[in-house]
Design a protein around this nucleic acid. Structure first.
Lengths: 195, 195
DNA sequence: GTCTATATATTGATAGAC
DNA sequence: GTCTATCAATATATAGAC
């Protein structure tokens, strides 16, 4: 099951899906980047869809270590944690000049109708990320006196700011709409904490 | 230039791009839905990309009449206008059971790297929609005493809530994250106006 | 497990009759 | 302007030697 070649194939596919999307990526491209021949790819994966599942599983397993743990390990403050996660996505956008958005969000939109089980896995990843944001939102709620939004709602807004900011940033090829949205979210959180 | 057949082709392509994305849509599907033979399609359009451009141009021309005018004609209140536009997108999501998100946002993500001129057109559509939201945000700012976010920032957040809410709703096949984000946005606007 | 070679289907696109 | 027929390229996927 585990294999160095297999890992290379999944990692190459993951990069390509991130850069171009699932549909636009061909097996020839995966073969080229992973330096594995088509025959080798089909030794490990029965179909192209099977590669997609492996990529999504990889995100599912690595989301914590890759995105949440570094940020949450850096600080205990719930506000800093939220904006630390958001800033991680911002860095991807800026460093890749808006070619790399959210790997999971991109797949979510692309898998809209078809492949119900792949979409279900993507759904779970969103749930996990929402849970992490929710723990921060709960701490924030505990610090405020008047009634603010539910932790679930604030957590949803945080993911919304990430995904919506990415869509606009990629469309406009500018980080400005992303930053503007984040500025509002911070203002909102500040106002909540001022109560 | 204008032709009933051509209109049918563009409209069918528009629907299919909305439902499945640009890459996943084949000319055979466009031919089937528009009831035009491949030969006819290529009489009007030199390439598949030319169809894409026609679709984007259609959105560019019809965005006002299709999305903004109905909402802005219904009320003068800037807050109601903002949430009226947002609710239009919500209706698409719910009525189509999360298969139809934002036609422009979907293309924006898909055209990330390639076809720079198509992406530029998409960019212009976002600018137009942002302008409409910005006019509302400016009125809201005029009603508040203390310093709130800039109208540009609040407008960006409105689009972010739409696009980010759609990504999550389609991923989770649930309107909940969309509604939760909108609830927060409304709470934020209420707090701005309470100042 | 990895390679070469190739099958099969579908893609975007074209030619030319009418 | 619309049709039929089809091309050439590319896609996913397979067979079988090593």
């Amino acid at each position: 099951m585990a294999s160095e070649t297999r890992d290379r194939i999944v990692d190459s596919a993951r990069q390509l899906f991130w850069e171009q999307g699932f549909e636009s990526t061909t097996l020839a491209q995966i073969a080229e980047r992973s330096e594995a021949m088509p025959g080798s790819i089909y030794y490990f994966f029965k179909t192209k869809d099977a590669i997609l599942h492996a990529v999504i599983d990889h995100y599912d397993e690595q989301l914590g270590a890759w995105l949440i743990d570094p940020v949450f390990g850096r600080t205990d403050d719930p506000v800093e944690r939220i904006f630390g996660v958001i800033d991680t996505y911002r860095s991807f956008l800026v460093e890749t000049h808006f070619t790399l958005g959210c790997p999971v969000g991109g797949l979510a939109l692309e898998l809209g109708g078809e492949s119900a089980d792949a979409r279900a896995k993507v759904s779970k990843i969103f749930d996990d990320l929402t849970s992490a944001m929710e723990s921060c939102a709960r701490e924030i709620a505990a610090r405020t006196s008047t009634a603010g939004p539910s932790p679930e709602a604030l957590a949803a807004l945080c993911l919304t700011v990430i995904e919506g900011g990415i869509v606009q940033a990629r469309a406009l090829q500018s980080i400005e709409p992303f930053d503007r949205s984040v500025t509002c979210l911070r203002d909102y959180v500040d106002r909540l904490l001022a109560d």
